[in-house]
């Protein structure tokens, strides 16, 4: 009993660690797509900002500066996306794809040119990272059975960005559903003509949305390389941007359901790692690849309308022209 409880605790702990970048990116995706801009480029923005965060931190010694550099890099990528598909009315999927491939090539090439370590950045010391926050009063909580463990192991002991990701969900929810800006943002994604008629610039609204998305992706990238990890490695984002995209769709473009989708996908990955080589009763060994494929399979099934119906924003993917 106690052992399985410990197992669940540690599973939940790694779920949160895995889900954090997904949460940031899913929220970024919501901002972008709710305003009508498809964001395939989450992956590339995260990869780019992970590289920039590690590089800037290594050069300056300050993770705070690294974080800002990451946000700056990610927002620059967002602006390229915006320039291509808002200003020049280019195809949003193609533009996102270009950003992903550019980020792959750019991070490896720059990494090799700067550090000559085959694309990696030099390892960062613990002073150069966002380390787990220690709450001294929490140690006393562990006296409380079960609940104390849950608190100390799962909720406490993460770095600041993990907590920030939870805040990001509430921030996204609040901005999109409770502010005038959010109302306009949703309107731009559904019926841009209506917003235009009301005298609000569609172009400006969409640029603002993708810049917020850029900031959130920057946080995700920084988490990978200067908080969770201690330096940048080639292709570090490893498809997480796409999983976040899937989680956003799974959450039907809503912040709170998307948060749970991220946690679910994070849990599946954590479980997959834990189950490797373990014989389960009746089932036998579950291949780790099944767990890896499950988020994608679930998203496909959801999109096909077999479990509920995911409806994308009405004007998604359509560049806005005043002439119509």
């Amino acid at each position: 009993m106690l052992e399985s409880f410990q197992l669940i605790i540690s599973l939940l702990d790694s779920t949160i660690r895995i889900a954090t970048p997904l949460i940031f990116c899913a929220m970024a995706g919501i901002f972008s797509e709710r305003s009508g801009i498809i964001d395939i480029g989450l992956e590339g923005k995260m990869l780019l900002s992970a590289f920039v965060a590690a590089t800037a931190t290594f050069l300056t010694g300050s993770p705070i500066l690294g974080l800002f550099a990451a946000i700056f890099a990610s927002c620059s990528a967002s602006l390229i996306h915006g320039f291509a598909c808002i200003t020049n009315k280019g195809d949003q999927v193609i533009s996102g794809l270009a950003i992903n491939i550019l980020a792959s090539g750019l991070t490896i090439t720059l990494g090799i040119a700067l550090f000559s370590r085959g694309g990696q950045t030099p390892p960062l010391t613990s002073e150069q990272r966002f380390m787990p926050i220690e709450f001294s009063f929490l140690d006393q909580m562990s006296i409380v059975p079960f609940l104390g463990d849950l608190f100390v192991e799962v909720i406490a002991g993460h770095n600041i960005l993990v907590y920030l990701s939870v805040l990001a969900v509430f921030f996204t929810y609040y901005v999109i559903f409770k502010t005038r800006f959010g109302l306009r943002l949703r309107a731009v994604g559904e019926k841009p003509e209506a917003v235009d008629t009301a005298g609000i610039s569609v172009i400006k609204m969409r640029y603002q949305s993708i810049l917020i998305a850029g900031m959130l992706c920057g946080l995700a990238g920084a988490y990978l390389s200067i908080a969770h990890g201690a330096g940048f490695g080639r292709e570090m984002s490893a498809g997480k941007g796409y999983i976040a995209l899937a989680a956003m769709i799974f959450g039907k473009w809503n912040p709170i359901p998307s948060l749970f989708a991220c946690l679910l996908f994070g849990f599946l990955e954590a479980l997959g790692v834990r189950l490797e080589g373990v014989e389960l009763m009746w089932i036998g060994e579950v291949p780790v690849q099944v767990m890896q494929a499950l988020p994608y399979v679930l998203t496909v099934v959801l999109l096909a309308g077999f479990i509920g119906k995911a409806r994308a924003p009405g004007a998604i993917g359509v560049p806005y022209s005043k002439e119509g």
Partner: peptide, 25 residues
């Protein structure tokens, strides 16, 4: 010593950007 075959990935990304996303610029 400082540029590798991954440079091609960068060029590829730029070509997709300019010939695809910015095709009508």
């Amino acid at each position: 010593s400082s540029i590798t075959r991954e440079m091609v990935l960068l060029i590829q990304g730029l070509i997709i950007l300019f010939s695809g996303a910015l095709a009508y610029m």
